[in-house]
């Protein structure tokens, strides 16, 4: 469903069909894709769009370390498996009880998710061309709403994240009138030091 929305919203926002489709195949990272397209549609330059997406994806380096031993010994398997590393695949694989099942889960779920995600994006992008003006009329609200739907479960589960997130958002909003589009979001990372340590040791 998220892939479907990504395809439809990108195209309804004025991007050609091949942009979301190509992006989903070669980038394959949901929140980074939404963010990069969001920056583009908001008038930010391609450099800001790529920088935002890449910063969002730095966490995949940590995830790929966590599943490195599941990718198998072969070079080809490792090279291909790395592309399948996403938040969801890693979480699902690591939830399995033993190494053999973890490995199977990574590959089955990883390939399945890749197929479903890309099929969804293609379908959404094709459907997006058929969306008329009514959808376009409220479309600017749809992208922020997607991001709300993506982060709210995490903010709900981890209260310590709320302070750095709020601080970062305020910094970004305050900077918006003065710097080029796309840059305020990067400045929000200055709110990160407000992220407390586990168990609220600092008080």
């Amino acid at each position: 469903m998220i892939g479907l929305s990504f395809g439809a919203l990108s195209v309804a926002g004025g991007l050609p069909v091949w942009v979301p489709v190509l992006m989903s195949l070669v980038v394959y990272a949901g929140s980074a894709q939404f963010s990069a397209v969001g920056v583009l549609l908001a008038g930010g330059g391609p450099v800001a769009a790529a920088a935002t997406g890449l910063l969002l994806n730095t966490r995949t380096a940590a995830f790929s370390l966590a599943v490195a031993d599941l990718l198998g010994p072969g070079r080809a398997a490792r090279l291909f498996g790395a592309h399948l590393v996403t938040d969801e695949t890693v979480a699902f694989a690591l939830a399995q009880p033993d190494p053999a099942r973890r490995r199977a889960a990574f590959w089955v779920f990883g390939i399945g998710l890749f197929a479903v995600w890309n099929a969804g994006v293609l379908t959404g992008a094709l459907a997006g061309t058929a969306l008329g003006d009514p959808a376009r009329y409220g479309l600017d609200a749809a992208f922020p709403a997607v991001l709300v739907a993506l982060v709210l479960p995490t903010l709900r589960a981890n209260a310590r994240l709320r302070r750095p997130a709020a601080l970062g958002a305020l910094l970004a909003l305050a900077a918006t009138p003065f710097v080029p589009a796309g840059v305020p979001v990067l400045l929000a990372l200055a709110g990160l030091p407000a992220y407390g340590r586990t168990g609220g040791v600092r008080r």
């Binding site: 929140s31 963010s35 969001g38 920056v39 908001a42 008038g43 935002t52 910063l55 969002l56 730095t58 966490r59 380096a61 940590a62 600017d140 609200a141 992208f143 922020p144 991001l147 709300v148 993506l150 982060v151 995490t154 903010l155 994240l161 750095p164 997130a165 709020a166 970062g168 958002a169 910094l171 970004a172 909003l173 918006t176 009138p177 589009a181 305020p184 979001v185 990067l186 400045l187 929000a188 990372l189 709110g191 990160l192 992220y195 340590r197 586990t198």
Partner: peptide, 29 residues
Amino acid sequence: ARVRELLSAGAVVLLVALLATGALTEGGG
């Protein structure tokens, strides 16, 4: 563990900032 936590937290901070600016601002205003 602290580095792993900060990487994940950084992603959330970026997304929240993106949604806040996307929800409230347009062309710098």
